[in-house]
Write a protein that binds this DNA or RNA. Sequence first.
RNA 1: GGCCUCAUCGUCUAACGGUUAGGACACCAGGUUCUCAUCCUGGCAAUGGGGGUUCGAUUCCCCCUGAGGUCACCA
Length: 470
Amino acid sequence: MSNKVSTRFAPSPTGFLHVGGMRTALFAWLVARQAGGQFILRIEDTDQKREAVGAAQHIIDCLNWLGLDFDEGPIYQSQRVKEGIYKKCAQKLIDSGRAYADPYTQQEVIEFRAQAKANKQPFLYRNHRPDNPPEWNGSQPLRFKSESKEYSTEDLVMGKLATGPEVIDDFILIKSDGFPTYNFAHIVDDLEMAISHVIRGQEFISSLPNYRNLHEALGEEPPVFATVPHVLNEQGNKKLSKRDGAKDILDYQKEGYLPEAMVNFLATLGWNDGTEQEIFSVSELIKKFDLKKVQKSGAHFDEHRLKWINGSHIRNLDIEKLYEKVEGYWPEPAKNYDREYKKRVLVLVQERLKYFSELPELTKFLFEDLPVNPVLISSHKQLKKFSKGELKAMLEQAKNSLEQSDFTIDDLTSRLNDLLEKTGQKPAVLFSLIRIATTQSPASPALAESMSVLGKDLSLKRINRQIKAL
RNA sequence: GGCCUCAUCGUCUAACGGUUAGGACACCAGGUUCUCAUCCUGGCAAUGGGGGUUCGAUUCCCCCUGAGGUCACCA
């Protein structure tokens, strides 16, 4: 027995990965990295009917995106089926009298179950355990001959999990198609791969006694268990699920979320370090994460919080880094602009960017002339009180001053201030007017900064255009 | 229905049995010479109910309620 820490992420390739599954993977990865141990990716593809094409690759893409590197894998269980690994272990159980062939037809088992249900009793196969089962020829299901007894398991997250003997049953080890069930395959694999910490969702709690029983039959010590509660949907009325509209993790990548922000969000969904810290780097998480501080109750998925965390991580990026990451999110006309210009644009919008696909909306006025929109003035609560002539006069006056400017932020700022005095207008009037003229946008970054990036020619051209349109 | 798990602001959460029950997100209000955002200040807002134990329960015990999970030849 080694005391080395090994964890695994063992999804079945049945579709895309959502926040809940990803969080479980992250927890397992953090535990492994913190201990300097191994993180293994194992694809549990023992149900051919449910397998979705491309799902395994998708899982790998998700892990790669978040930087959850694995030391071993992907290991495919279907491959290990071919290698006869599960059958070999099954044979050991048969030899020791702990496994037997199921003689019933599927229809008969269904009837047993229906009968139990009609009697309002939980269904237990072992109540029908045959006295003289036939020899197993591989075409019948192979069942575990269980030993019903009490178990108390210390779970790292949940604490003590105790159950009575009534929950243990003769579950199927090998299906009639020759594939092992999850219940069998994962036990064999976790043992063989020396997994020290089994970290998974709470849907397995009720199977835990069966697993303990199987470990005993195999003569092996169980690993440490850590059972993580589910992530619930936004309404909080059910666990997050694919058919319930949960998003694919890679959708967040497409929308321009930062992987380190997603990791931060996922890790703090149901976990905190006991301090008031909210924003963590990945290396801080590796240092501080602790399964014992994971919440026992399910956590609601909250996209507001994800956006806030992402915005925070974006603000912490230096411009060079941000520039690299934002590649591919620019509005179409930005392709005609050089790197330096785009970096200046980024400085302008960095603090208001929540995720990268907002970039076009936020910056398009800096790359193309937007049509003059009269509504921006007519719906403005200050500007709509002025006549067109008055507005025109203000813009003329502004133009005359700005024509003398070198368009540095300092010079623009002082000229704008002078204009305030000369026109006797409030900033809410004068600045709004110039801002609308030069951006044609309902919202935009600070005026002097925006005009400075826009440049003298364009700014004046747009002011002229606004004057003519009035 | 049986079994299991869980229960603090709307949400994520903090609180050796002794705190005005704290922080963050969201929301609202004000400030930062215009808008949006950032930042700052302030506000709203919680221990599901009932019994115990205790000088004192968010905290320990019991019951109820509510929520979730599970009872597959799915994982």
